[in-house]
Design a protein around this nucleic acid. Structure first.
Lengths: 133, 133
DNA sequence: TTAACACATGAGAAGTTATTCAGGTATAGT
DNA sequence: ACTATACCTGAATAACTTCTCATGTGTTAA
């Protein structure tokens, strides 16, 4: 996960010149293509959404987030719960903070992290449900 | 995305020897740690869930899946809709097939892909909703 | 049979990611 | 002031991902 919002394939994707004829490239079902194309989320939303999903799509981060579903925890605690180094946790927390998936409060030298969003809980629950079936 | 189910950090993660004292490593809030630890999803579920979320966490795949929410489409169509090469689409479809996010039917030499699962639609909708707010 | 088409796949290149390690900063206690 | 603690961060490295290009497979049409 990069901290910048620029996705890998933003540079690679063909420049979609929205001319009159949508189906310039060879395609089999023009009407279906037009329909599907109009249903695509706009670029910004798609990027935001994938950045969000990317953050959930990592075992370490999913564990961190799962742990935070029960209670707020400090970095030390999280390292202990997840079973990795504090440094690794800290790096991941930075990504989660940047993506606004977690919030935190400082108390002296201890930093308590918590989930920032209901969506996180919902999505994790859905994904786990899907995984179990 | 690898096709194998072995995650990157399965080999790196410290071996959690589940001895009597859960908090062997230094940690600040033992009770919170125990609580959070018991709430962690088991390893297999966490892996499956993250594999699923990983598949959603890519702009190209999200576009493919979004397109398939409207109607079934062949590889050609998808390439046209998303704006990338057929080969790239095909590679991504393989991952989505392996992860059982899409299903397909063959008709002559054309292969029609469709979403395999309600969860996919739900999750995409949630993620986009989160992205927009 | 031959050619064209729709799709799949392997190899390789270029980019991205997650960890460790070696330092940092800020706060609390002595 | 000095030390320990809790946390953060940059650099480096190994692993992973996603594309392109070349090629292979199966099906239809001439």
């Amino acid at each position: 996960m990069s901290l910048r919002a620029t996705p890998y394939n933003a540079l690679v994707t063909a420049p979609t010149t929205q001319s009159a004829d949508v189906c310039e490239v060879a395609c089999v079902h023009p009407e279906a293509v037009v329909l599907a194309k109009s249903a695509l989320p706009d670029e910004r939303c798609a990027t935001e959404a994938t950045n969000f999903l990317k953050l959930l799509g990592d075992t370490t981060r999913l564990k961190i987030l799962s742990a935070l579903q029960t209670t707020e925890l400090c970095v030390c605690d999280l390292a202990s719960v997840v079973g990795i180094s504090e440094s690794a946790v800290s790096h991941q927390l930075r990504l989660l903070r940047t993506g606004r998936l977690v919030a935190f409060r400082k108390e002296g030298r201890v930093v308590y992290y918590r989930l920032a969003d209901e969506h996180v809980t919902t999505l994790i629950r859905s994904a786990l449900e899907h995984a179990r079936e």
